[in-house]
Simulated assay, not measured.
Amino acid sequence: MPVLSIIVPVCNVEQYLAQCLDSLLNQSFRDFEIICIDDGSTDGSPAILDAYAQRDARVRVVHKKNSGYGHSMNIGLSMATGEFVGIVESDDFIAPDMYEVLIEAINRLQVPYVRCLWFDYWDDGNMHPSSSCLCGEQTEEHKASPLACTEIFHEHAAIWAGIYKRSWLEENDIRFLETPGASYQDSSFFFKVLAQCGEMGFVRLPLLYYRQSNPNASMKSRQKAFCAFDEVEEMERYCTARLPENGEAHDVLFRRAFAFFHWTFYRVSREWKLPVLRRARPVLRRLREQAPHAGQDMPPRELLLAQAMMHSPAVFLWRYYTGKVKERIFRQNG
């Protein structure tokens, strides 16, 4: 049995796949398996995967019809045999010592989850290191409690910038939501990990290269617009089933849900803004009732926006567009 199982979800990434797999196979840490889940790719990705599997017995490949990211990841989790699980997206690549550093850290700190920093990476070679609320510690490696430092819940999920103890994931039923065609299926997984882990480890080193796509693309389809609600409802289901008495987790969930809905509101195209607000209103009201101190950890302006979203979707939208018009007039007269 290998020490580490690395899950690589793949769907039409022939341009980047070899760089990703080479970075895994060239790790200084050698005791691992790579589980590649081909989610119905129609480009050259399947052939590339098969070639690597023939070349190195540590590479295992599953080809299947397209069923979505969450289903692919759950297949990988079910196949994993290692003591620890890592995740690498097939258009990213990692530093040669990433898993050596993370495995040493998780063993030293005796925690179920360890996270590192990463580089935002562009194809022209430009890159910028990420940051975290956990960077305040002076040491490069330390423990942290997510429910004591709740800002971590609102950072990039970056589920690929870490490793997890496999038995702990299984014992706590931490898996992915399977919604075909949806986006952001790492969101509920990340929330479950943080809410359940008690303590996590943090390594203040960027060890992965996160390839950037267009961050300004709007979500135009109804399915993309409403996938945030599926993820929040999965977080709520998990809190109710697994953490019913954990008031801190429910408090964090209220703020996380608002932030997710607010971000979705800004990202969706115009025709979906009011439907998003109308669906967000009852969910936020329900979560507020379940959270003993809902909103107490929110900055005043953020709390006011959450209250406005719960009060009247139509008024919230009117104020949004009124503000946009005022901003445009100010710029024209500036």
Score class of each variant (00 low, 15 high):
195 A>M: 05
247 G>K: 08
306 A>E: 08
187 S>W: 13
313 P>G: 04
264 T>S: 10
186 D>C: 09
263 W>Y: 07
208 L>T: 02
293 H>L: 08
217 A>M: 14
274 L>Y: 02
233 E>P: 00
300 P>Y: 01
247 G>E: 15
247 G>N: 12
260 F>S: 05
240 T>R: 13
224 K>Q: 15
275 P>R: 02
201 G>F: 01
300 P>H: 03
187 S>C: 09
308 A>V: 02
295 G>M: 01
290 Q>R: 15
294 A>Y: 04
291 A>T: 04
202 F>C: 08
187 S>N: 13
288 R>Y: 15
224 K>L: 13
276 V>M: 02
240 T>F: 07
198 G>Y: 07
269 S>M: 00
194 L>E: 00
308 A>R: 14
317 L>R: 13
219 M>N: 11
196 Q>V: 06
204 R>G: 11
217 A>C: 09
270 R>P: 00
183 S>A: 04
224 K>W: 05
179 T>Q: 03
190 F>H: 14
266 Y>W: 06
300 P>F: 01
218 S>D: 14
217 A>I: 15
185 Q>N: 01
199 E>G: 03
303 L>W: 12
220 K>E: 11
211 R>C: 04
221 S>W: 05
204 R>N: 13
227 C>Y: 09
237 R>H: 11
235 M>P: 08
253 L>T: 12
246 N>T: 06
188 S>I: 09
180 P>I: 06
313 P>R: 02
275 P>K: 01
297 D>T: 05
283 V>A: 02
230 D>R: 11
308 A>W: 07
275 P>W: 00
180 P>K: 02
